[in-house]
């Protein structure tokens, strides 16, 4: 088992994204540093469009995360509905 992580700037754009990730990935841990938050998860982490949209109250294109993304690790699988990081192949 290895950790994957994703890190975002802390701002109003990312608050719903971070909340959605923490709810959709039980066991994921948010580590806060000045101006940024790094979310660690065992092996796999998923970002779901619908969860973010339900918080935002508008349509959300998952590629919008690029604007506030700081870093990540793991293999990426991306489609219109979800964005997954994992060490599985």
């Amino acid at each position: 088992m290895s950790n994957v992580f994703i890190a975002f700037q802390v701002n109003e754009d990312t608050r719903p994204i971070i909340e959605a990730i923490l709810e959709d990935n039980p066991g994921a841990v948010a580590n806060e540093s000045p101006a940024m938050v790094k979310i660690d998860a065992k092996d796999r982490l998923v970002v779901k469009r619908e969860s973010i949209e339900s918080r935002l109250g508008r349509r959300f294109d998952l590629q919008e995360i690029h604007v506030n993304l700081i870093s990540l690790t793991g293999h990426i699988d991306e489609d219109d509905d979800q964005f997954t990081l994992s060490w599985n192949h």
Partner: peptide
């Protein structure tokens, strides 16, 4: 290079460096 250093810039109240740093880091 970027993550701890830029977070460090934030901690030292250097708004402009944090922003170019995170903008690059994205």
């Amino acid at each position: 290079l970027f993550v701890p250093f830029m977070s460090g810039a934030a901690y030292n109240s250097d708004m402009s460096t944090v922003t170019f740093g995170f903008s690059a880091q994205s």
